Simulated scan of single mutants.
Amino acid sequence: MRGAVSIAVFIAIAIVLAWLVALPLWLGEGLSSPLAGNLLVAMMFTPTIAALVVVFFIEKPEHKARALGLVPLKPVGRLIGYLAIALILPIVLCVLALAVGALLGVFPADFLHFRGFEQITRMQLAEVGITELPMPIDVLVVLQFVNLIIAALFINIIPALGEEIGWRGWLLPKLLRFGPWPAIQLSGLIWGLWHAPVILLGYNYPGTPGWLALIAMVVFCTIMGGLFGWLRLRGGSVWPAALAHSSLNASATLFFLFIAANSSFDPLEANITGWSGWIIPLILLILVVSFGKFKPQAVSRKENP
């Protein structure tokens, strides 16, 4: 009973705080507001606030850092291995999502010559009075991947951790009592609906009816949240999930590199946020659960605090 109360309080705090943070957007200019970027980042910390309230004022466990998923950080080899997977996997999935979208005809791709990226880059340079590319387009593409990794490791990681301490650090282990698939589905539903304040304003799915965009976000969060959950459980702490979330946020814009010139696409259909982008992550998640890997890694006595 106490566990159900904790979960209910956590969900209520996270969702209410998210709406409060986003309220200025609803009362003002929406996502075009100059405050939008800062408010979106601030909203990402609301799940951690909710988890801290529950852990420190309701549950009061002896090992609070463990309850939040911040420890253990050993064995170090296992942690490093899952951190490496967490960094690379979202990048691979985002690129594969674009490839699947191209095969299915919903993403206009140019994987060889990067004409769309070149077009976008030239337009951006022209705005500051530069008429020539500073280096070959192939080199610029490579540099974008370097920037992506830097962003994942050092820039996006803090706000991503702000979400993951709540979703995968605290909530997911609480839901595992219902079994792997219910835990994945429930946590995905909660995480997806938590995005409602910005999804209904057009975030991620501009031009899509709000109800449909919210359904798409729930599906997306269920699939990707399941993979983040696997990294959290097998890695032993929330850090791999946080890095994967950070890497995904950085990688979701890779479509700029591979889109064909003079083209556009519907984010409901293509990219990692669209239905064609869910196919490979869903297959991977099904394999993870089917092979019994969606559970905590066995912990030896030496690893106990």
Score class of each variant (00 low, 15 high):
110 D>F: 07
114 F>G: 07
176 L>M: 15
146 V>F: 13
123 M>S: 13
169 G>W: 00
147 N>G: 15
171 L>M: 13
137 I>F: 09
151 A>I: 03
129 G>H: 04
153 L>V: 07
173 P>Q: 08
111 F>V: 10
115 R>G: 09
141 V>K: 02
183 A>T: 07
172 L>E: 04
160 A>F: 01
178 F>A: 15
92 V>M: 11
83 L>P: 09
79 L>K: 12
88 I>E: 05
179 G>C: 09
136 P>D: 14
121 T>V: 11
163 E>A: 03
178 F>H: 15
144 Q>C: 08
119 Q>N: 13
157 I>D: 00
149 I>N: 06
109 A>M: 08
158 I>T: 12
100 V>R: 01
180 P>K: 04
155 I>V: 15
186 L>K: 02
162 G>T: 02
94 C>V: 13
141 V>Y: 01
98 L>E: 00
138 D>F: 13
78 R>Y: 02
107 F>M: 06
170 W>A: 08
92 V>Q: 06
146 V>Y: 09
142 V>R: 11
123 M>W: 04
89 L>E: 09
93 L>T: 04
142 V>D: 08
82 Y>Q: 14
134 P>R: 14
113 H>N: 15
117 F>D: 03
97 A>H: 01
159 P>C: 09
83 L>E: 10
100 V>L: 13
138 D>A: 15
129 G>L: 12
129 G>I: 10
141 V>T: 08
180 P>I: 02
151 A>R: 04
114 F>T: 05
109 A>N: 06
178 F>M: 13
150 I>K: 14
88 I>K: 08
155 I>A: 14
134 P>S: 10
159 P>V: 05
152 A>C: 10
148 L>P: 02
101 G>Y: 00
173 P>R: 07
159 P>G: 07
84 A>D: 10
107 F>G: 06
124 Q>P: 04
86 A>V: 10
136 P>F: 06
88 I>F: 14
173 P>M: 05
75 P>E: 06
125 L>H: 07
